[in-house]
Nucleic acid binder design. Structure first.
Ligand SMILES: [Mn+2]
Ligand SMILES: [Mn+2]
Ligand SMILES: [Zn+2]
Ligand SMILES: [Zn+2]
Lengths: 160, 160
DNA sequence: TTGTTCATTAACAACCTGTGCAGACTGGTT
DNA sequence: AACCAGTCTGCACAGGTTGTTAATGAACAA
């Protein structure tokens, strides 16, 4: 994702207005590597701008995704996530809490032979590694007093 | 997935009853390589047994998944899909119509280095190839009369 | 500065996938 | 035949996301 100033330019170039709400969202996303959901972006921005609406957050995230400034990723964690990291990379997803971590390794050897491609015009290859994150391993090793402690930690359930 | 008779046994062995509804679902899934959604299983079974409820289809599919007879896969096509193919394999997903095709190539070289794994306990690796299927390429090359023709072909929209 | 256009908000409704629930029903067993 | 655990159905409902509408407000080009 471009930095907030560049996004401001890009929005103007598209005839979109640059509003305080949009700028607050740009700022919230800058440097965010957590693969936030719309709700979590809303939570972050609301802290600075309590009057912003969830609807506006959705709209702006969708605008950014349409402009290619953001990737819309669906990793089966129950809600769409938005990824400002435009570099080619893959993901590590915690099956307990839904946490998503970037994997920057390149897997260049990964190509589909023509016969396997079945006539498809290929556009992208996504690799998802699933497992249990360090935080959730701790919780699991304990006597699990309330059974919901691990999910509460990250704030999102894996599959609603 | 086991064949219907074996599933009947497996259900009984677990103390689960074998009902006509469940048998109809077993039969519908046998040899189905389309990665059906619950809705599409429901549609198929309803043709033979019009009184079956969607709720029962969901329940039975979940039971089968819990028993490991079916894989629950989420490929970002808007709804969960169920995969009776238990062999390790990957998927090719059409970004236009949502069609899913198996890729049986093995990518054994694919391993995550310890530093990339970030302390996760890894459990699974999924590879998703995205592109446009042969059918949808045809539609796209034409003058696209109604713009919705390509989606109607496969019966499911990629992202609701 | 002014005017036009676009954006935001709020309050809903609608949508879709999926699940919880209550009550009627039935498979498998005795 | 009778029993009971387990199942089916229909409906309500939840979560995530989008559509609508109207009223207010603000961005930015002229
Ligand atoms: Mn990422
Ligand atoms: Mn498959
Ligand atoms: Zn976790
Ligand atoms: Zn297609």
């Amino acid at each position: 994702m471009k930095n907030p100033d560049q996004l401001t330019e890009a929005f103007r170039a598209r005839g979109l207005k640059v509003t305080p709400q949009r700028q607050a969202i740009f700022a919230a996303l800058a440097g965010d590597t957590s693969h936030p959901t719309a709700e979590s972006v809303y939570a972050a921005v609301s802290a600075q701008m309590p009057t912003i609406s969830l609807r506006t957050v959705y709209q702006t995230l969708n605008d950014l995704a349409e402009m290619g400034e953001l990737n819309h990723v669906n990793l089966g964690t129950g809600s769409s996530r938005f990824d400002p990291n435009l570099a080619p990379h893959h993901h590590l997803v915690c099956t307990e809490c839904g946490q998503v971590t970037d994997v920057h390794a390149s897997f260049d050897g990964l190509r589909l032979s023509d016969d396997q491609a079945a006539g498809y015009t290929l556009a992208a290859t996504e690799i998802v590694f699933r497992g249990v994150c360090p935080g959730c391993q701790h919780s699991a090793n304990q006597i699990s007093p309330t059974r919901s402690s691990s999910m509460a930690a990250e704030g999102e359930s894996p599959r609603p």
